[in-house]
Write a protein that binds this DNA or RNA. Structure first.
Lengths: 227, 227
DNA sequence: CCAAAAGTGTTGAAACTACACCCATGG
DNA sequence: CCATGGGTGTAGTTTCAACACTTTTGG
């Protein structure tokens, strides 16, 4: 027991709320707990913050250790500090909000117990993780309307139909196809490719790519992405 | 040295970025440090999180202990965790963002060393507090456009001129008087009072009051406050 | 030829921008 | 009567919401 302090200290952890998009909707990455407390329940991936890393570094490290995934987008969500949020001892947790591309979603789990679960049919979670997920979903719904983060959930080349379905899944309501297209194309942050998606049993949709450089240029001029 | 742990733990603190509005612009509340490190420099009010309080409770407690102020608005800003942000030891700090009304701004400081400083002429601050303030100003500028937090900086009864000057101070640009009035009155969250401000050497301006209940009702219906 | 999703244009209503003048008070 | 900020209306432009039909492919 080598570490002693003059005053007691809360333990400090990170938790990751990781969203992915699949054909059948928005998914959340969860771990099934193997030990008490909350043995058998699902929980967010996460763990303790080391002394030589920032909380963001801890979040990326834990995410990779527990699930094998690298987030294409990761930002701090909120710090949760309810005194009784962990029944064992005082633990303050910095939650992170992450998005991963679908190539990471499909395929067997590197970490045996990590699973993708439908974001709109979540089981009860361990600790205060229900609340953390609720806050993360709020953030996702708010943020997708004014920041181009939807593209972090799609493959590099995508159709406007895929993009619209993603927005509809996240916002939980239908969007007008014509107005959605007009709005998103007007912004000038999508490159129209000379390619279509093959092998569909209807008119093949054109593929687009998000132009990050164009977006950054516009953003610097005060332009506002907004759906 | 009674508190021992199996693994080392960062210390956990809170810092408060407190904004107030005065006649001559936006102010930030700072403390002059009496001890090393950064002795003599200005710093944000803050301190250690106790084991039996949330970080928000700690922020309110520290703010009152160090400055005598109660925030009319307080929300979590961001958690800062750079490994070297405190030269003495590893300290992770949860920063809070607070607004106080002008009655709290004027008058002698309860805490001798607390001072209001112009938000646009800040001296260099201790630790990473420059960065924390930068993030807080960004948040304030973004948030005032889509949340009715400006009223937390004004007295309960205010004129539209005061409100507009506040918005101009925070956003750093002039706003068209007619358009500003139309926009803010159209929302229907201000009560027009049967009172005017007396004692001014020009046409006496009408007083208004923010109607929180009306705002909440509208917000529940999906209405968006936006300037 | 049928099903399925892709793709496109218009119109009326609302909001946004820019702009100039009169009003009520104190000094 | 002057200075000061308060207070208002309008016209042109842009954006928004709502809506229906044609196109291209696979089966």
């Amino acid at each position: 027991m080598p570490y002693t302090y003059e005053y007691p200290r809360p333990a400090l952890t990170v938790d990751c709320v990781v969203f992915g998009a699949a054909d059948d909707g928005l998914k959340l990455l969860l771990i099934e707990r193997a030990v008490e407390p909350f043995k058998g329940r699902y929980a967010l991936p996460g763990g303790f913050v080391d002394m030589d890393e920032t909380t963001e570094e801890a979040a990326r490290r834990e995410l990779e250790e527990e699930t094998g995934l690298k987030a294409s987008f990761l930002e701090q969500l909120y710090t949760f500090s309810r005194v009784d949020r962990d029944p064992r001892e005082r633990v303050v947790s910095v939650a992170y909000f992450a998005l991963v591309r679908p190539s990471a979603v499909v395929g067997g789990d590197d970490a045996a117990s990590a699973q993708w679960v439908d974001a709109d049919e979540l089981p009860p979670l361990a600790f205060d993780h229900d609340e953390i997920v609720r806050v993360a979903l709020e953030r996702l719904r708010a943020k997708i309307r004014y920041q181009p983060i939807g593209f972090e959930l799609l493959p590099p080349k995508f159709t406007l139909g895929q993009l619209q379905r993603l927005y509809e899944d996240i916002l939980g309501r239908a969007l007008d196809k014509r107005n959605f297209r007009k709005a998103i194309l007007r912004m000038g942050v999508l490159d129209e490719l000379d390619e279509v998606e093959e092998g569909v049993s209807h008119r093949p949709p054109r593929l687009y790519r998000f132009n990050k450089a164009a977006y950054k240029r516009l953003a610097k001029q005060g332009f506002n992405f907004e759906i």
